[in-house]
Amino acid sequence: MLLPFIIIASLTLASAAVAMMLRNLIHSALLLVLSWTGIAGFYLWAGAEFVAFAQILVYVGAISMVVLFAVLLTRPARDVDSPLPAPTVIRLASGLMGGAMVASVLLTAILATRITGGRAHAPSVTVRDLGALLAGPHAASLLAAGVILTVALLGAIIIAAPSPRNPEDPS
C-alpha cells in the first residue's frame, strides 16, 4: 500500500523539481507533464478514479498542449538575446529563501499535528454518484463553471489576437 505511494511521490516531486530548474522550456514542460501524470497516479492510488482521468484529460492532454504552443510561439529572438541583468542573483536568493521559509513552516505544522481517526478504506464515489451530485445539489456551480470557461476562453482569444489597428506589426 505504501510502496506505490512512495514511487508516485518521488517521481512527482523529482520531475517537478528538475522541471523548474532546467533552462530549456520544452524540457521543463515535458517534465511537468510527467509530474502531472504522477499526480493523476496519486488520485488513482487514493481511489478517486474520475478525478484522475479528469486530471489526465485536462492537464496531460489540454494544458500541456497549450503550454507547448505558447513556448513555441514565444521563442526569444537570437539577436536581441542579452545576458541576464545583475539583480537576478538577489532575486534568486530571496526567492529560494522565501520558498525555504514556507517549506519549513509547512513541515513543522504537518509534523506537529497529531491526526487521529480517519477511515481505513477509500469511500466509494462512482461516476453515477458524481453525476447525481453535479446535476442535483451542485447544478448551479456547474453552470457557473461552464460560464467561466466560456468567458475565459473568449477573453484569451481577444487578448492573444493581434490588434487590427496596428497593421505594421510584424506578428
Partner: peptide
C-alpha cells in the same frame, strides 16, 4: 499516518511551485 505522507507530498509540490514562481 498516510495522511501525513500525502500532506508532505503536497507541501513539497507547493514549495517547488512557489520557489519557481518567485525565482
Amino acid at each position: 499516518s498516510p495522511l501525513h505522507l500525502c500532506l508532505l507530498l503536497s507541501a513539497g509540490l507547493f514549495c517547488i511551485g512557489l520557489t519557481a514562481a518567485l525565482c
